[in-house]
Design a binder for these strands. Structure first.
Length: 483
RNA sequence: GCUCCCAUCGUCUAGCGGUUAGGACGCGGCCCUCUCAAGGCUGAAACACCGGUUCAAGUCCGGUUGGGAGCGCCA
């Protein structure tokens, strides 16, 4: 039997055994925020855990503030975090026609109505309510008036005729049951006077059309959920499952802002944090699995659930982030880390490239280097002495270590290693023997070696570094500081 | 002002009526040690407050205080 000609366009109908459909729906008004990144992560994790879908929708209906740069930044951020989405990106602005269609359908059915109140009039209304200490909300002045009472040709918006009694309950998977008395929810605008849809209408329609089953988002949307639920119910659509995750706060407990720095995920990348670190850290900020702290992504996919999302807001702790990053750096392959360092050098001004020999040294030293770096930036800095040939300039501490006595000893020691087998092990043996003979501690020999070889007072184990640098280069550097 | 949410060490958290309140980061000490890390051991450190319910409350209920969010023809 053919469907009636006036039937609504086909859309996804939920069935009981349908897999969950999640979505991340950022508005492109800036960079991908760290809080947004966590929201995306939770949605992604749940979709991957359940074998459902993770969709991406760009909420660009605010043409004033939405920019193509912001869209690009968000996509770049998600890609860096390796949170892949299913299917094509939905751009909300492109669906305005469909949104308008729903608003008009509601209007035709008497479930919505035209409101001719002007913005100035509403401002006045709110000011009066504020002054009287009353709740601030639309008073329904056009709810029961006939449009014919409006001045001819006056612009109007379409408002939902929301229930005024009873209550709207959100069965939130994170927050539990949240109840709102309908009398305190006003008639929200669905369609603006210029015919464009509002956010409230657009989300509900898009989520429905995209077949979204679960909405995991920041709890700044909790109040919106009640209104959205009213719309869903008026439309008779399947109800989505909400989960409102507490916001992330800065180290001082206040809402994250520019003041705290590091809001955008790109900043974390630039500071040398690994995507895997960010996923693990963000996951633990608000979600737990017993006492587990180090949770690689595959494990997270296996374990993730909605029930274990915490209800209280969390603060950012860079020390813990560092600790986690150090862990994942240590776990990374040496050549992959070398690539990261090369990438970092390429971004310097002026850009530097890693020579073949420097890369060889870098990889050879990497097992010891990566033990001591908290970020990729630190790793690159600590590897600096491997990139150039010839004598090193000394930093203050290194200069202090190379006292006249130390330089003389260095010269003497050099003669004992002139033609030995150039291995870390053999060099260390010689150094120990030399120290013994001179009545010195090993450190009194090793530290001057380190200072002369690297120009600094900290480095990976020095005998291993001598081996990495090789006989010729090492001798060259050491000789330069001999007295 | 109104509505809603939250509340365990400094921070992230475990706890789901009976625990010496556990772990992690950070901090102190010790061990290891050529420096710095890493690692091992160890120490200090928390149930915001007040009432209930109960034989028993960090766990349940109410209030107070303190944080947070929202109250647009923004999203």
């Amino acid at each position: 039997m053919p469907s009636p000609p006036d039937s609504p366009k086909p859309h996804t109908i939920m069935t009981d055994n349908q897999k969950p459909v999640l979505r991340f729906a950022p508005s492109p008004t800036g960079m991908l925020h760290i809080g947004g990144a966590r929201t995306a992560l939770f949605n992604w994790l749940y979709a991957r855990h359940t074998g459902g879908k993770f969709l991406l929708r760009i909420e660009d209906t605010d043409r004033e503030r939405s920019t193509p740069e912001a869209v690009a930044a968000i996509i770049e951020g998600l890609k860096w975090l390796e949170l892949d989405w299913d299917g094509d990106i939905t751009y909300q602005a492109s669906r305005a026609g469909r949104h308008r269609e729903i608003a008009e359908k509601l209007l035709a059915e008497g479930k919505a109505y035209r409101c001719f109140a002007t913005p100035a009039e509403l401002d006045e209304m709110r000011a009066a309510q504020r002054a009287a200490g009353k709740p601030i909300r639309y008073d329904g002045r056009w709810r029961d008036r006939d449009p014919s009472e409006a001045p001819a040709g006056a612009p109007s918006v379409i408002r939902l005729r929301a229930p005024q009694t009873g209550e709207t309950i959100i069965h939130d998977v994170v927050q539990g049951d949240v109840r709102y008395a309908n009398e305190q929810l006003d008639d929200m605008i669905l369609l603006r006077s210029d015919g464009t849809p509002t956010y409230m209408l657009a989300v509900v329609v898009d989520d429905h059309d995209m077949g979204v089953t679960h909405i995991i988002r920041g709890d700044d949307h909790l109040n919106n959920a009640a209104r959205q639920m009213q719309l869903i119910r008026t439309l008779g659509w399947p109800e989505v499952i909400y989960g409102h995750v507490p916001l992330i706060h800065g180290p001082d407990g206040a809402k994250l802002s520019k003041r705290h720095g590091a809001q955008a995920v790109g900043e974390y990348r630039d500071m040398g944090y690994l995507p895997e670190t960010m996923r693990n850290y963000l996951l633990r900020l608000g979600w737990s699995h017993g006492n587990d702290e180090t949770i690689p992504t595959p494990q997270a996919v296996e374990w993730f659930n909605l029930e274990s999302i915490g209800k209280s807001p969390a603060r950012l702790d860079f020390k813990k982030l560092d600790n986690l990053n150090a862990h994942y750096i240590r776990a990374m392959a040496d050549d992959a880390l070398a690539d990261e360092v090369a990438h970092l050098l390429g971004r310097e001004t002026p850009p530097r490239t890693l020579s073949v020999s420097a890369r060889k040294r870098l990889i050879a030293a990497m097992p010891t280097l990566k033990e001591r770096a908290k970020t990729l930036l630190e790793l690159a800095a600590a590897a600096e002495f491997l990139f150039t040939d010839g004598p090193r300039s000394l930093d203050d501490a290194a200069a202090k270590v190379l006292s006249d006595d130390a330089r003389r000893n260095l010269g003497e020691f050099l003669t004992t290693i002139a033609d030995i087998d150039w291995t870390g092990h053999a060099l260390e043996e010689k150094a120990r023997a030399f120290a013994d003979a001179k009545g010195l501690k090993l450190g009194q020999v090793a530290q001057p070696l380190r200072a002369a070889l690297t120009g600094r007072t900290t480095s990976p184990p020095i005998f291993a570094m001598l081996e990495v640098l090789g006989r010729e280069e090492s001798i060259k550097r050491l000789t330069a500081h001999v007295l």
